[in-house]
Design a binder for these strands. Structure first.
Lengths: 191, 191
DNA sequence: CCTGCATGCAAGCGTGTACTTGCTATCAGA
DNA sequence: TCTGATAGCAAGTACACGCTTGCATGCAGG
């Protein structure tokens, strides 16, 4: 990936994050990247192709994969904190807004599978973790699918609301939120 | 509000819900409403004005206000279920997608205050509820702001994820989710 | 029957959009 | 020094957009 192409991708993705795919024009992308507009088309052929290359770059993806949830200590409280923190550290407001900016009918089909991988990584990892904890006798049997959905919804919901409304909606800080949420779950899942 | 104007508003809001404000054209709105395109402009003057009238209509707002959370029994489990259900019954996938479709730079300033009222209604109502429960001696002291944020995030997150991915992400049904989530919180908040 | 209003129809305006083209300047590598 | 690749520049294409206008039609109320 040459330098010019990278500048174009970066400019396009930043604009889409800020105002959405349809509202972002190729003229703006060119200006933000500091190149001539015709250069975009010589390099990528079309506006759509720029963002499809962008979403396939590691730098424009929140690095949320099953691997980041492997660092478990088999100690429920610490591990739930790790799950929440691993997700929140990566899914920054910028990535939340980018995900929404990519929600255009012209792109949805091609970007949706990639977007859905993120929640799936959290959910399946955490469900698997709970099942192993059950096998180890550390927690009682329960509906682990539903529990995982609750913890993930609580994590995702906080991140999304923060990205959308900032401190105006709630002043509860990330670390306080994690501690408090995990405490509720800890007692809620106790033997 | 005459019949023609209403049909125009309904068509515009439905299209915005499905493809977003910028991607929705006045030609499409006219066709969906079954009227001539020039009629939109004779009635409303501009595309933006159609939407601003739409978001001010009860039918195009999820009716989530502090009033819908008043029906409490001062019994923690039943009341938390009521809070979640009251929100979920009103914040349907259609309204979630509409909220996202309205996220256009050209509209944001005028629609954001209205959008934020919904989470605020849940949060402040539930925080107030927990404080009263504390005064009644039914729950111990805790960080009620953080707790309310957790329950609301869990509720909102589920609704949003369902609206975005449907059953493909998680098969956990609404009622099972509510029961399970409330159970966790019940034990988590116990004396 | 007449009047006024709401709407359709068709054409058009100016602008902005994604995308193209032909030519030129620059510059690194052979 | 020559060559080939890269990119700027300026002009332009075709089309779609939001929005306008003039005229015809139909219909309800006096």
């Amino acid at each position: 990936m040459d330098d010019t192409s990278q500048k174009i991708i970066d400019a396009a993705m930043a604009l889409i994050r800020d105002k959405g795919y349809v509202a972002t024009t190729t003229k703006e992308i060119a200006r933000a990247a500091g190149v001539n507009e015709c250069t975009l088309f010589r390099k990528f052929g079309s506006k759509k192709e720029i963002v499809l290359e962008g979403v396939n770059q590691a730098g424009w993806r929140a690095d949320v994969t099953p691997e980041i949830f492997q660092n478990v200590k088999w100690e429920l409280g610490a591990d739930m904190e790790m799950f929440m923190r691993a997700y929140m550290d990566r899914m920054t407001p910028d990535f939340v807004n980018l995900s929404i900016g990519l929600r255009a009918p012209q792109l949805y089909e091609e970007t949706a599978p990639f977007i859905m991988k993120v929640p799936q990584a959290f959910l399946s990892s955490f469900t698997g973790y709970l099942e192993k904890m059950r096998q180890m006798g550390k927690i009682p049997e329960a509906d682990f699918d539903a529990l995982a959905m609750t913890l993930f919804s609580a994590t995702f919901g906080y991140v999304f609301l923060r990205a959308s409304f900032g401190e105006e909606l709630s002043k509860v800080e990330k670390e306080a939120y994690i501690r408090n949420t995990v405490q509720v779950f800890l007692k809620g899942l106790a033997q």
